[in-house]
Amino acid sequence: MVKYIVIGVVVLILLWVIASYNKMVRSKNKVEEAFSTMDVYLKKRFDLIPNLVETVKGYAKHESETLEKVIAARNAAKNSQNVQERIQNEAALSGALHNIFALAESYPDLKANTNFLDLQGQLLKVEEDIANSRKFYNAVVRNFNNVVMSFPSNIIAGIFHFEKQPMFEVADAAERENVKVSF
């Protein structure tokens, strides 16, 4: 009789371990999917930036430092080695893009250029998509981190090396400020 109780308890613990592990795998896959979705929008932004910079160059020749910073920030973000580095580099890129739009305020001809306006509109749409995908990614990461950090599933997470994932958030205090854009 005791033998069956022990076997039953062992089977229940084993089933719980399997269920917990599978839940963490599903959650981890959702995190990776959410990041990949956001990465698609980030790639769209990377592709738009050179066109935007070239358009601005024609009007703002002596503002090359601002444009070089945008390209450098784009390249750093594109070549990030891990999620944490990517988060920091994306924040720097967002700040650099705000500088281009601020620069455009100084050049009325540039603000009236249809190519610039089209690129700006596309970039603003992509930025909106990025913001939405960041929200989704952060929600998925929150759920995953809750599973990984909660007792008793944190025991399983430790055994199978599931680690807390970073949120995608604004890293720079200057980026938290509103940017004035007028048309």
Rank of each mutant, 00 (worst) to 15 (best):
R142P: 09
I5E: 03
N115R: 02
N29E: 15
L117F: 00
F46V: 04
K180A: 13
A104E: 07
I13W: 05
H62Y: 12
K78I: 11
E54L: 01
N154K: 07
L12I: 13
K135D: 08
A91C: 04
L110K: 01
H62V: 08
E85Y: 05
N29L: 14
A77E: 02
Q81K: 14
N115I: 00
E32M: 14
N79Y: 04
E32Q: 14
V17Y: 03
H62E: 13
N143Y: 11
V181E: 10
E128A: 11
E54T: 07
P108S: 09
G95D: 09
N89D: 07
R176K: 14
S153Y: 02
F101P: 05
H62L: 06
P50K: 02
I49F: 06
H98G: 13
T114S: 09
K180S: 13
D129S: 11
G8T: 09
E128N: 12
D39F: 09
K135N: 08
E54C: 01
Y107S: 02
K69Q: 06
A112T: 08
D47G: 02
K30E: 15
K69N: 07
G95M: 10
R86D: 07
D47N: 06
R176D: 05
I7E: 04
F151N: 07
A73F: 01
F144L: 05
F35S: 14
G121L: 06
S182I: 07
G158L: 01
N146V: 09
L93K: 01
L67A: 02
S133R: 13
E54A: 08
D47W: 02
L119M: 04
K57Y: 00
P108L: 08
D172G: 07
L42I: 08
T66I: 10
